[in-house]
């Protein structure tokens, strides 16, 4: 009996953890996204990019890019636009397609500017990955 109870507890615990992990995963990704731009370190994002990510970055990039392309495009953007702060004004985590929207502050040729940022995730092999990034 005790063994059975223990097994049930373990199973329940594992499910809850798995569920919360799935839920927490999207929050972790959005946090990683914020850190990548706040600290100008796109490597923080590289593990969360989908195999084919939709990117729309200013007027320069628009389309689906492989993981490595997406990584280097973001790296290129960060080095050119020198973003120093990103603020997500709205996040929706509890959905099959979580998303976050906000504002990115950057400095271009000495002048501080802002751009709209939208990030959405999709599920791939049981985990969330970044499917879409728009910075306009």
């Amino acid at each position: 009996m005790k063994k059975l109870l223990l097994i049930i507890v373990i199973i329940l615990f594992g499910s809850i953890k798995g569920f919360s992990q799935g839920k927490g995963n999207s929050a972790v990704i959005f946090k990683a996204f914020e850190n990548a731009f706040n600290y100008s370190n796109p490597a923080l994002l590289s593990t969360y990019l989908a195999d084919e990510t939709y990117l729309s970055v200013k007027s320069e990039y628009s389309g689906y890019y492989s993981k490595s392309q997406a990584f280097y495009i973001l790296q290129d953007f960060i080095s050119s636009y020198a973003p120093f702060k990103i603020k997500f004004t709205h996040k929706r985590l509890d959905s099959s397609s979580p998303f976050a929207e906000g504002v990115l502050f950057f400095s271009l040729r000495g002048r501080r500017q802002r751009a709209k940022v939208f990030v959405s995730l999709e599920e791939q092999k049981g985990n969330f990955v970044i499917a879409q990034i728009t910075i306009d």
């Binding site: 490595s68 990584f71 280097y72």
Partner: peptide, 22 residues
């Protein structure tokens, strides 16, 4: 160099830690 032949959208690979990133 920025853009054009130095743009990663036309080619980029993680090979060699990024020695072919554009």
């Amino acid at each position: 160099f920025k853009g054009g032949i130095a743009s990663p959208q036309y080619f980029s690979s993680r090979f060699g830690g990024g020695i072919a990133r554009n």
